[in-house]
């Protein structure tokens, strides 16, 4: 019978996305190492002035120093708190607004141009105004982060909820689903990968938001540390701040990618299926 044969051949697990493939990992690591060596050599022997470009080794040393002084932890913590609240608020509010606008077509048509404009505007440029309105404390930072992060989430939530494949809805209707069942069992799960993709876009924007908001005026935080260090010609400390942000960015984006893959594995299947 055909099915016995089909089982072994056709039901093989699909190839997942490329970064789990060993050669790619290996090559990526090599590129990393090469870049580190080039940096060290250029900083030490070509430029030769640690004020312009501090060698990678000095950055490492400075990281340990700052950690021992206890200052670094404080900056990381402050930036983390701002990021956490700004991003969490943006996620919750963004998804809720997206859900409302997806259902309410007339309102959506009013809001669409506004949303596209706000999405494209570099809200961060309004940073100084927010500091003026809300002070140099944490609140102004949370507001800026919220505004930079919320629009991709709204837009993706709307897209996810309004582009449900028609056949899937027909299937549910044909099986006498109620409108509420169609929403909770078809449209919401179908929108979930879109929403997570929106969160992924927003995380990167929120991180930029943290730093730039702190550049405009703050008492602590990684952005504050970066400006301060630059003004006192501590170039190594500038790089310490940048590195920590880079790691935070990579980790949060990869985390959301992982979540996306767990929740919507069918979107990552190979082409040859």
């Amino acid at each position: 019978m055909i099915t016995g044969l089909a089982k072994s051949k056709e039901a093989a697990p699909p190839t997942r996305i490329a970064f789990s493939v060993p050669p790619a990992l290996w090559r990526g690591a090599t590129a990393f190492l090469l870049a580190a060596v080039v940096w060290e050599v250029v900083a030490r022997y070509v430029i030769g002035n640690p004020l312009f470009l501090s060698p990678l080794s000095s950055v490492a040393v400075r990281t340990v120093e700052l950690w021992h002084e206890g200052e670094l932890q404080n900056h990381i913590w402050v930036s983390f708190v701002e990021f956490f609240w700004g991003f969490t608020l943006a996620s919750v509010v963004g998804i809720l607004i997206g859900i409302v606008l997806a259902e309410w077509r007339t309102l959506r048509q009013f809001c669409d141009p506004l949303l596209s404009m706000m999405y494209a505007t570099p809200i961060i440029a309004l940073g100084p105004l927010f500091i003026l309105w809300l002070g140099i404390g944490v609140i102004s930072k949370i507001a800026i982060i919220f505004l930079t992060a919320v629009f991709p989430i709204i837009i993706n939530t709307i897209a996810g909820l309004t582009t449900t494949e028609r056949t899937l809805i027909d299937v549910a209707r044909s099986l006498s689903a109620t409108p509420i069942q169609i929403y909770t069992k078809v449209r919401l799960p179908a929108a979930l990968p879109f929403i997570i993709a929106g969160l992924r876009l927003s995380v990167a924007r929120a991180l930029v938001g943290v730093v730039v908001a702190e550049l405009f005026g703050a008492r602590a935080g990684l952005g504050f540390m970066i400006v301060n260090s630059a003004q006192s010609f501590d170039t190594a400390a500038v790089f310490v701040g940048v590195f920590i942000l880079a790691v935070a960015g990579v980790v949060s984006v990869e985390l959301l990618k992982f979540l996306e893959m767990k929740l919507a594995p069918w979107r990552f299947q190979s082409e040859d299926n």
């Binding site: 056949t167 299937v171 069992k185 078809v186 799960p189 179908a190 919507a264 069918w266």
Partner: peptide
């Protein structure tokens, strides 16, 4: 249905 209409999740 023609195109299987299975819920992928």
């Amino acid at each position: 249905f023609q195109n299987d209409g299975l819920l992928p999740w």
